[in-house]
Design a protein around this nucleic acid. Structure first.
Lengths: 215, 215
DNA sequence: TAGATTGTTAATCGATTAACAATC
DNA sequence: TAGATTGTTAATCGATTAACAATC
């Protein structure tokens, strides 16, 4: 793997999709694939695919293409799926519970080790075999289990203080479902934002600006 | 509004965030804002902000800046939030229920008019005052209520056939939480994808490629 | 060897930033 | 009027695409 140059966000953003297609090809028993074939399946150019892969090294073979299994494994290693980062869920509301019960964390480079919510109504409830705990137990828990990543599913106004606390407790990575801008205050943190409402408004834009517009 | 040129996806992707900041400014009672001030708050360049706004028309005034209230309203109109598109939720699993109960559809240009799930276990359950219905009632429902958008929260393998059906029933827009590539088959559909697992893998990448790497 | 397809360099395209004249 | 800030054009930067020599 070429460790020198920084990989652009555009390239990184395409990696999970490459990985997904390679998993499907692998599951379907395909042994080799050319950049042209892959480009047709994925709706990209073959050039882009080769450029993207070559950010990380030459995984192909001239005249042959790429070995599906090998490329899939390379991709998993690049994405860091082979090392599990311990993660906690903060906020066990509708969205938090959906995320906790639905995501296959272990296949995505994480293991969910704790779930916290301030609301006593959830106390005792279990998700994925994990009991929902009070935030009062957070500090102790972090000392013992050393989670590194937090999934932020708390209400907007609770996010800033909570992030401050989590940073103090040694976490440095966030999967952020709130609109709080973590990177503004902690530029060194690893942050991936999921802004569902932004995504929905984007759809509104494209509907109202399509041929049929308002209908 | 300049109706001529197509607006790039990069610009459209920034509109909801502009709108969000303008709502906050408005709520805080701010009357005017300059592109420089806004750029500092948002972490963008003033140039970019002015370029973005001017895709849609000149909303500012030289020497003064922008009127917060007016700009907010313009933004809402551009995003099409003032017209509600009727939408249905397909799939009332964890994620579907979270989305249905959490999103403020009416503030984002949509109204949720129906919820459907094949699983009889959900029959009778209510979300936002809407009863979860059997898919058998879908065709009749669409004839009556004419939903235009569907939120796809169904398992991977159910998506292709379901989209075929929804297209036949007159829907042309999708908020897609599955990995099924709707646009490949229906290039004219309005589609916004939410790929939670891709998002999570992206975070894994940035963690494992940060200074501390694997830890 | 001949054919295929990569890895990589060069060309193009688009998006972002800088600069500044227009003007409130 | 003088100062501020837009709208817009030009310059820069980065990402995508095309081309092709290297090579399996």
């Amino acid at each position: 793997m070429k460790e020198n140059k920084e990989i652009s966000a555009s390239v990184v953003g395409r990696l999970p999709r490459y990985y997904r297609f390679l998993c499907e090809l692998s599951a379907a028993g395909e042994v080799r694939i050319s950049s042209r074939e892959l480009s047709e399946r994925m709706g990209l150019t073959a050039s882009q695919i080769r450029q993207d892969f070559n950010c990380f090294g030459g995984f192909g073979q001239q005249g042959y293409g790429y070995n599906v299994e090998q490329l899939k494994n390379e991709m998993a290693a690049i994405l860091g799926l082979d090392v599990l980062t311990p993660a906690i869920l903060m906020g066990a509301g509708n969205l938090g519970r959906a995320v906790a019960s639905q995501m296959r964390f272990e296949e995505m480079g994480f293991s969910l080790v704790g779930i916290f919510d301030t609301d006593p109504a959830y106390r005792g409830m279990k998700l994925r075999g994990l009991q929902i705990q009070s935030n009062e137990k957070l500090a102790d828990f972090c000392l013992k289990k050393r989670p590194r990543m937090a999934i932020l599913c708390v209400p907007q106004d609770k996010a800033p203080a909570l992030v401050d606390e989590l940073i103090l407790l040694g976490l440095d990575s966030f999967w952020n479902f709130s609109h709080y801008d973590i990177r503004a205050k902690y530029p060194q943190a690893n942050v991936t934002n999921v802004h569902l409402s932004d995504s929905l408004m984007t759809l509104s834009y494209s509907i109202k600006n399509s041929q049929n517009g308002g209908k």
